[in-house]
């Protein structure tokens, strides 16, 4: 999954989201060692300090832990479902907010989504 950084939001938040997505999709799983900050930063094309801040944020949220000598790991308790559920919720909050912003009411929003699912053959 390529790293994509938007212009209008803090970079570290976007890095956190990206890594959460990698956990949600199973690209990173419990017990995996997280690559070193510098490697990840180079891969994402961002400043290592920013990447460091993102990883610390993920540690605070309990998705990773760091071991002084061995590096950083994805927490064993990290439940993929839990991460994807919370990520799905974040996306839903965005979607709902945007649709409301367009002036649609709740029924119209649900209808639009149902129509789309049907169309896309889902």
């Amino acid at each position: 999954m390529a790293w994509k950084i938007d212009n209008d939001r803090p970079v570290y938040l976007q890095l956190m989201e990206h890594i959460k997505m990698q956990i949600a999709t199973g690209e990173l799983s419990a017990g995996d060692r997280v690559p070193p900050v510098r490697v990840l930063a180079a891969e994402a094309g961002v400043n290592p300090n920013t990447m460091q801040k993102a990883l610390q944020g993920l540690e605070r949220e309990g998705l990773m832990y760091s071991n002084r000598t061995e590096g950083r790991f994805i927490s064993a308790e990290t439940n993929v479902n839990q991460v994807s559920t919370s990520y799905a919720r974040e996306l839903t909050v965005d979607y709902y907010g945007n649709m409301k912003g367009l002036g649609l009411n709740d029924q119209e929003i649900v209808k639009t989504l149902e129509d789309y699912i049907e169309e896309s053959g889902g």
């Binding site: 212009n7 209008d8 939001r9 803090p10 970079v11 570290y12 920013t50 801040k53």
Partner: peptide, 14 residues
Amino acid sequence: VDDIRANEGKSVDE
């Protein structure tokens, strides 16, 4: 940079 983005909702370029 991240404070600018968080507080202003825009990039440094903007």
